[in-house]
Simulated assay, not measured.
Amino acid sequence: MKLKNLTKWGVMVVALAFSGCQEDQEVVQQSDIAKETLDKIYQMGFGTKEVQRVDNGYLVEGDIFLTEAALNDQHDPRFLRVGETEQYRTNSLVTPGASSVNPRVITVSVSSRLPASYKNGTQVAIDRYNAENLLIKFLLVSSGGNIVLEKANGSYLASAGFPTGGNPYGSVKVNSRAIGDGNTATFYNYVGTIIAHEMGHCIGFRHTDYMDRSYSCGGSTANEGASTVGAVQIPGTPAAADPNSWMLACIGSGQSRPFNNNDKTALNYLY
């Protein structure tokens, strides 16, 4: 996701990523990345524009981290569509619980290196998911979570990866220097929106405007890539544009995006 309308940063990658994935990592120019690697990224169904090499892998689509090992795995990527504004998922999902009464609990912890306000924002994100009575439930813990929010620097707001082996991706890199700090409900909701977006990646969601990121980011049409299998449309969703999805690629500074009806349909379809 990209952050729009930030005076300090200009147009920022907000897939909640701004550009890198870890502190003090080397960021390599696109021209220095081998065509073979870009081809593998494309074949996985990810965009190859502004790909960055970071520690142990690559950052794609602004906030999605792919390891070297992931690039060399056999892939069967799939996505699901909400009308003409798409909700996409990868083929890798989290193994859910048996029912909403007995959901799988996924713990989330926040590094002490992040401002205290980020715990409030994370709780906002968790509350949004848990209000949907899904087959997964999130729980904020003091340390050692299944998903750990870690402090990071670089040209991004936050970044995450996708599930493996039925488990959520284990970390969200958060650039608190770029996001800022605050002690208001407005700020908590903003951070909560960023964290909920990255948690969405951790459980298998792609960007809603995957096929044309200019929808939320502006500028020229930017198709993030081609998947190798067809789309599955979620029944009962409208064929109109969806300007408020929590998984849009870009976000305005200070914006809050709770789940809209299409988001809720997608979440309940998967979990």
Rank of each mutant, 00 (worst) to 15 (best):
E61D: 00
K40I: 02
T193M: 07
S253P: 00
W246C: 15
E86G: 12
L80A: 14
E198W: 02
D73E: 08
T48I: 08
S142N: 00
G20R: 04
G165Y: 00
F79R: 13
P115S: 05
R53E: 13
F162I: 01
Y271E: 09
R177A: 09
L135C: 10
A231L: 09
D209A: 04
V14C: 04
E132F: 08
E198C: 11
V14W: 00
P96Q: 01
G83N: 06
K173R: 07
A125D: 15
R89V: 12
D76R: 14
S214G: 12
R53F: 11
G192Q: 04
I234F: 10
G166E: 15
V229L: 03
A34I: 03
E61V: 03
L80W: 15
I195W: 05
V191H: 05
K2V: 13
A241D: 02
W246V: 09
N175C: 08
P258C: 11
D181Y: 02
A226T: 14
K173H: 07
V13G: 04
A241G: 01
I195V: 11
A98K: 08
S220W: 05
K35A: 12
S155E: 09
P235F: 06
A116G: 10
C21V: 12
N261E: 15
E86C: 07
Y269P: 00
G236D: 14
F205A: 14
Q52W: 13
V14K: 08
K173E: 15
E224L: 06
K35W: 00
L16R: 11
Y169I: 08
G47N: 02
H75T: 02
H207L: 10
R53Y: 10
R89N: 12
S19D: 07
Q233G: 00
D63P: 05
I64V: 13
T90C: 05
V232K: 15
P77E: 10
Q87M: 11
E36K: 10
S143D: 07
D242F: 02
G192S: 08
F259D: 07
A241E: 03
R89M: 14
D209M: 03
F79E: 13
Q233Y: 13
N189G: 01
S253L: 08
L135Q: 07
I234L: 13
I106N: 04
Y215N: 06
Q87N: 05
R81P: 00
S117N: 05
V124R: 01
G252K: 03
A249M: 11
H197K: 04
E224C: 12
Q123F: 12
A70L: 03
R257G: 12
L134E: 01
H201G: 11
T90Q: 01
A222Q: 14
T228P: 01
S111V: 10
T186A: 13
C202D: 06
D242G: 07
N5A: 11
P163T: 10
M247S: 11
T184H: 01
S142E: 11
N133P: 00
M199E: 13
L38T: 06
E23L: 13
V60T: 12
